[in-house]
């Protein structure tokens, strides 16, 4: 693996790290399997890309992107809590609707950002390799997100959010409106996923409606890898662990892509299969270990 490929994988790991944090909020903290992310990732990309082509500041374009993601998450949360649709199904419904919405927003299936200003442009003008300056930008965003999330989880609201995922009956009896915590929690999660999508699109130079396929599986894989490699029982450190998991996951994928076994090699389209297999192995591993111990 070349240094260039390694650095690229690091970029992806950090960029998608924001998405992984979002999935962590729903999947682990709220215990709400949320497939909305497959739609909210390209949603963030679409909103940000359209605004940049209209002359918006690329940094400023991240705010409406986050807002759009938040709204998408709220829709899923409301479908699940107010309309009592099974959470997984509610998220699939929103994800499906977002496909059409994303094309409406962009007016076509994809938008090129080549030669337009992005959040990576300011550092890109400096005399350092683009790949390193990209990593600096991604790293700053992820550090900011980790700090924000660690703070949020320690607030009264954050503690109520954790309790909603752990024991909804108990926290209701203590006066918390769990509909509110679920709707806003899934909203915050998807806001982070949307910003992740916007950053990745700006970095790769295009927003594409199909870029969201497999987001949830990649997110789960990163979480499982992170939790396995860096076990932690506290939310604060678990947040860092899953971001590291995201980086390791992208490195593993890059390694797999570079494999060449007697004429056979993986192509980019095999990525989803590799990831799906990885998630199954990671999810089953703890169970097998328990069986072995018995």
């Amino acid at each position: 693996m070349t240094l260039y490929a390694l650095s690229g994988a690091l970029s992806l790991g950090l960029g998608y790290g924001l998405m992984v944090l979002g999935v962590y909020i729903t999947f682990r903290i709220l215990d709400f399997p949320d497939l909305t992310v497959d739609g909210s990732l390209p949603l963030g990309a679409a909103v940000s890309a359209v605004l940049i082509t209209k002359g918006w500041d690329p940094f400023l374009s991240l705010l409406p992107a986050a807002g759009a993601g938040f709204l998408a998450g709220m829709v899923t949360g409301a479908l699940s809590t107010k309309l009592r649709i099974l959470n997984l199904l509610a998220s699939i419904i929103t994800m499906t609707a977002l496909y059409s919405i994303n094309i409406r927003i962009m007016g076509r299936p994809n938008i090129s950002l080549i030669s337009l200003p992005t959040v990576f442009s300011p550092l890109g003008r400096l005399d350092i390799p683009t790949i390193i300056s990209s990593n600096i930008v991604f790293l700053s965003f992820i550090l900011f997100a980790v700090a924000l999330l660690s703070w949020l989880m320690r607030t009264e609201y954050g503690q109520a959010l954790v309790a909603t995922g752990d024991n909804p009956r108990m926290i209701k009896s203590l006066g918390v409106n769990t509909n509110f915590t679920i709707i806003t929690g899934v909203g915050i999660s998807n806001a982070m996923v949307a910003v992740s999508g916007a950053l990745i699109a700006q970095n790769q130079g295009s927003a594409d409606v199909s870029s969201g396929i497999g987001t949830i599986v990649a997110g789960l894989a990163s979480i499982v890898v992170g939790e396995t490699l860096f076990p932690s029982s506290r939310v604060g450190t678990a947040i860092i662990a899953v971001v590291l998991g995201s980086v390791v996951y992208r490195l593993v994928i890059a390694l797999a892509m570079g494999l060449n076994l007697g004429g056979f090699s993986f192509t980019a389209s095999d990525l989803q299969l590799i990831t799906a297999t990885l998630v199954v192995v990671a999810l089953v591993l703890p169970m097998l270990r328990k069986k072995g111990a018995r």
């Binding site: 949020l152 320690r154 607030t155 009264e156 609201y157 954050g158 503690q159 109520a160 203590l174 006066g175 918390v176």
Partner: peptide, 9 residues
Amino acid sequence: GKRRTLRPG
């Protein structure tokens, strides 16, 4: 029975 704010938990 109190509002959950953004103050420390």
